[in-house]
């Protein structure tokens, strides 16, 4: 499988604050990567480094190019939604679409109009008059109208209501999850993306704390509801967490064979939120 992006000891510092430290990751083409981490973990900064938007230390190659030097060329292949509203507010929707159509060789005006037809956004609207949610919808419509092999989404659904979020992810699933396109999603809303992911990267305080195929992560973490009297046996296997939920004890394990755990209780798939919480809690001093 060819590589979409690879970093070696990537680091980034703002003033005296180190945002990224020794980040070495590899993202294969065709994978759908979830980049998760708490606030300020360095997710957006890592994405900006990958796309050549900011200077960095260390090595970074995207599509076998230096993203810093060849950002414009890279952006022909990559569609990117940043985590903050950044559309030029002085444009009208119609002019914005014309502009992107003129500047992006893979942009389809027809597709953009198709997506916008499902919203209340009209061509004559000025961007400054749109609500925050409408601007997000517009930006997502612009991005989805780009026929790119690589899509980088940084908190893409922030500001969208639940219906629009569902509709957006449905569209992403239909367009991008075909095994040929690469998708990197940085988000806090884990339950929205966990059914899409093929690879998981967890980042905390600028360091990668987990970088594995999603199937392997699910294999590694198990949620166990003990059979009566089996609690102590499970505790002996060193669970990473133990919780009381509705009067029932629930254990979360990282590592022990599922067959062994199965002897003491009922196995469940650990949720992404549980894995995330466990992995980040372990690093807390």
């Amino acid at each position: 499988m060819s590589v979409f992006a690879e970093t070696q000891r990537l680091a980034k510092q703002y003033g005296k604050t180190r945002i990224l430290e020794e980040v070495s990751i590899r993202i294969d083409e065709g994978s759908i990567v979830g980049l998760l981490g708490p606030n300020g973990a360095g997710k957006s900064t890592l994405l900006k480094c990958l796309l050549g938007l900011i200077p960095y230390e260390g090595q970074c190659r995207v599509l076998d190019q230096d993203p810093r030097r060849h950002r414009a060329r890279l952006m022909r292949e990559v569609a990117y939604v940043p985590d903050q509203s950044c559309l030029p507010l002085w444009l009208t929707v119609e002019r914005l679409l014309r502009l992107v159509a003129d500047l992006h060789p893979r942009f389809s005006l027809e597709r953009a109009h198709h997506f916008l037809a499902e919203t209340e956004i009209r061509d004559s609207h000025k961007l400054s008059q749109l609500s925050k949610g409408m601007r997000v919808q517009l930006h997502l419509a612009l991005t989805l109208a780009i026929d790119s092999r690589f899509l980088v989404l940084d908190e893409p659904t922030l500001g969208l209501d639940i219906t629009r979020r569902a509709s957006f992810w449905k569209q992403v699933l239909a367009d991008y999850c075909d095994g040929k396109r690469t998708l990197i999603i940085a988000t806090h809303l884990m339950q929205e993306v966990e059914h899409l992911l093929t690879h998981l990267i967890l980042i905390d305080r600028g360091r990668i704390i987990l970088d594995q195929p999603f199937e392997a992560v699910l294999e590694r973490y198990s949620r166990v509801v003990p059979r009566p009297g089996q609690e102590e046996a499970l505790r002996a296997l060193h669970p990473v967490s133990e919780q009381e939920i509705l009067g029932q004890t629930v254990f979360l394990f990282d590592g022990p064979p599922r067959s062994e755990l199965g002897r003491h209780g009922t196995l469940h798939r650990a949720s992404l939120a549980e894995i995330f919480e466990t992995a980040t809690r372990r690093r807390t001093p």
Partner: peptide, 20 residues
């Protein structure tokens, strides 16, 4: 202005070089 209104990220996300 593009840094003040933060639209620089939009411009940088397009296949347009700084030189252009």
């Amino acid at each position: 202005d593009e840094r003040l209104d933060r639209s620089i990220l939009f411009w940088q996300s397009l296949p347009v070089s700084d030189t252009e």
